[in-house]
Design a binder for these strands. Structure first.
Length: 421
DNA sequence: TCTGGGGTCCTAGGACCC
DNA sequence: TCTGGGGTCCTAGGACCC
């Protein structure tokens, strides 16, 4: 039988900021999403003030002011760097690990059943804290869904000291009875209210319900959760870091935009980002989609549209995709609307080495493209993003996002620490 | 005034074929 | 006059996750 541990960083983005701001210990702290839109991370002290996950900043400004909540714009370069340090530390504790998200990893504890897994997990927790300054919680169980649940309870109950092992049947039963279905990994809002209307309210009740009924209402994913609650492991550890199957770049504008040339700049920038990511994972794309939308929260004429282009042959070079992207944008652009957001994504990805050239592509031309992109990526890697970029991205991006409370790049750009400008 | 961004998987339904 | 049904492929949209 398998054993999984889920290691989850506590209030990750806030914890990253606090590493470099010891004065914030035990203080309420929040981190905002891009564009300073919503609260996406909160310390326990901030949660206690009633600041909910995902709530728009303007709705909580009064709490922030009244209780002196320290607020940061998001600083993803910092979080990605801290994440790497945490993951690197975790690797020392298990031969098999799946990096599940920026702040979570599943570890396999298979074959370690005779150890004291609680003690071992405390050792992991303490080591990560010592090496990185990031506090983590650890849940242990026989399936991923149960390990997630263990983690949820480890965070919630102070007396557990951030570690809970649910391989023990008595503890497991107590845990299942104490967990509402809405807190189960894989049960979202829609499914939770369906279950509630079937009078299934706790994880324990779901575990003991009729699989056929669950499958009828919640389909395959729901049935899988039910089996995982019964300690039948269906969701396996995914250790190999294969590339993404789809790559997206999108952003809200700092202010409404209606001019085609400004949209073209934004779409150019997104296409550039997407192609960089494609090349970094050695993939080429067959399909490219451009979309744009107005602000759905506003009482104004609304418009959303997208256009997908099938490339004649799969590619990852910026100027090839850019040609298609700007053409796609022109085909869906409509005058007279105030746009809030646009984006570009690619799908139908395949490894570069399997790249199929179409009948009319010249291998020589293709090689030239490849070398050009290699050179651009190298220069930008050495000298900073967008040192070289296509003119269509625009020099001055007036529509760019707001980010007024960003912390310095503590770990990646040391000169900012010295206030060198 | 101010409401994020980047992913995955699954299902239903249409188009098409024989 | 009688007007099928099964299979496959593709896409859009839903639900969920962090």
């Amino acid at each position: 039988m398998s054993v999984f541990a889920l290691v989850d960083c506590n209030s990750f983005f806030c914890s990253c900021e606090k590493v470099f701001r010891p004065d914030l210990k035990n203080k309420p702290v929040i981190v905002l999403s891009n564009n300073d839109g919503c609260a996406v991370a909160r310390t326990n002290e901030a949660k206690a003030l009633g600041i909910k996950m995902g709530v728009p900043y303007f709705k909580i400004k009064h709490i922030v002011k009244a209780h002196k909540v320290t607020t940061f714009s998001s600083n993803f370069a910092l979080y990605a760097d801290m994440s790497q340090r945490v993951m690197q530390t975790l690797r020392e504790f298990s031969p098999q690990m799946e990096v599940y998200s920026i702040d979570e990893a599943f570890l396999s504890f298979n074959g370690m059943e005779r150890m004291d897994l609680t003690k071992y997990s405390h050792e992991i927790k303490n080591t990560v804290y010592r090496y990185t300054g990031i506090p983590v919680s650890i849940g242990i169980a026989r399936t991923k869904v149960l390990a997630k649940m263990a983690n949820y309870l480890a965070k919630k109950h102070n007396n557990l000291n951030n570690v809970l092992d649910l391989t023990n049947p008595t503890l497991l039963e107590r845990a299942l009875k104490a967990t509402p279905v809405s807190e189960i990994w894989g049960v979202g809002q829609k499914s939770a209210s369906k279950l509630n209307s079937l009078n299934i309210n706790t994880a324990w009740e779901l575990k003991n319900s009729n699989p056929k009924v669950i499958k009828k209402h919640l389909h395959l994913p729901g049935e899988r959760v039910l089996r995982e609650l019964n300690e039948e492991s269906c969701i396996h550890l995914d250790c190999d870091e294969v590339g993404r199957k789809q790559i997206l770049s999108s952003r809200s504008f700092g202010r409404p935009v209606n001019a085609l040339d400004e949209l073209t700049q934004a779409v150019s920038m997104h296409t550039t980002r997407v192609c960089e990511k494609l090349r970094r994972q050695n993939s080429v794309a067959q399909k490219l989609t451009v979309f744009l939308q107005t602000n759905p929260h506003k009482n104004e004429p609304q418009y959303y549209n997208s256009k997908t282009v099938h490339l004649t042959s799969s590619a990852n070079s910026t100027n090839i995709l850019l040609k298609n992207a700007s053409q796609a944008l022109r085909s869906i652009y409509k005058k007279g609307y105030l746009f809030k957001k646009c984006g570009v994504y690619v799908s139908d990805l395949s490894p570069l080495k399997q790249q199929q050239l179409s009948l009319f592509d010249s291998p020589k031309q293709n090689e030239k493209q490849k070398n050009l992109m290699l050179a651009v990526d190298k220069i930008n890697a050495q000298n900073g993003r967008d040192t070289i970029k296509l003119a269509s991205c625009g020099l001055e991006q007036k529509w760019g996002m707001r980010s007024t409370m960003r912390s310095p790049a503590f770990t990646t750009k040391w000169h900012e620490l010295l206030n060198v400008t």
